[in-house]
Design a binder for these strands. Structure first.
Lengths: 123, 123
DNA sequence: AGCCTGTTTTGACGTCTGTCAAGCTAGAGA
DNA sequence: TCTCTAGCTTGACAGACGTCAAAACAGGCT
């Protein structure tokens, strides 16, 4: 099952999602995307996401001390981000490193594009 | 470089939020923005938001029948979107009309921008 | 006025979520 | 091997969330 030449990442980013403001998203797609927004809907996770996205990768040992929360709680939030497909984790030796998944990030950004047609209603 | 004609809307969009991937968002700002993402974190609300954003404005009477949910439930979800600052509502005669708030929409989109520096980690 | 339709509010119920303490697993080093 | 540290999992609990039925509110129509 080799899909060696297929650019999976771009396919997903482009084929999947027209901006929310272009045409109503269908129920099925909404069920897929909503958990991603939901994952960003907590202040702690939003900060974690931003810390991870602001660097090539981020060690849990650097993330945890930034919050007044227990280790398990941070771990739980990271799991939510991971299961939403927003970040990836990898253990290297003693520490676990988290890294953003740019496809997912781009997909959400594309959904929030505000085309010119709708922007006209602003003025 | 005269700034006398600077549009107010852009001020908010630019001054408020650097993209999540540029620098870690601070706790205060995260507390403000997270509820917006949270509001989009439900499939029904995501569809409502998309339906409203896809048209200049949308009547509740057209939104409700698109779901297998009671009127009060739809009304509740619309209230969540309204209190998150994502939409505005206005009663005109018999019906209530909902309209997207482009500033808020743009703000979220700006947060999810993926600058070239971080995108380099993709390849 | 009275009624009818459309929308929101209230109250209630079961489920989901964020949090911590305690226990567990993986890897490094002696 | 044994121990220490880093991180995850489990179990528990309070609070928040999604949903509906019933009631309340708003505006048009007779």
């Amino acid at each position: 099952m080799s899909k060696q030449s297929l650019p999976v990442v771009d396919l997903q980013a482009v084929a999947c999602c027209a901006p929310l403001a272009v045409r109503p998203i269908d129920a099925e797609q909404a069920a897929v995307v909503a958990p991603m927004f939901k994952a960003l809907g907590d202040p702690v996770r939003l900060r974690l996401m931003s810390m991870i996205a602001s660097a090539p990768e981020m060690c849990v040992c650097d993330l945890t001390p930034a919050f007044d929360l227990s280790g398990p709680t941070i771990s739980h939030h990271l799991k939510v981000l991971r299961e939403a497909g927003l970040v990836d984790s990898e253990r290297r030796g003693t520490w676990v490193w988290y890294r953003v998944r740019p496809e997912a990030f781009r997909q959400l950004g594309a959904l929030l594009d505000l085309p010119a047609t709708t922007a006209a209603a602003d003025a």
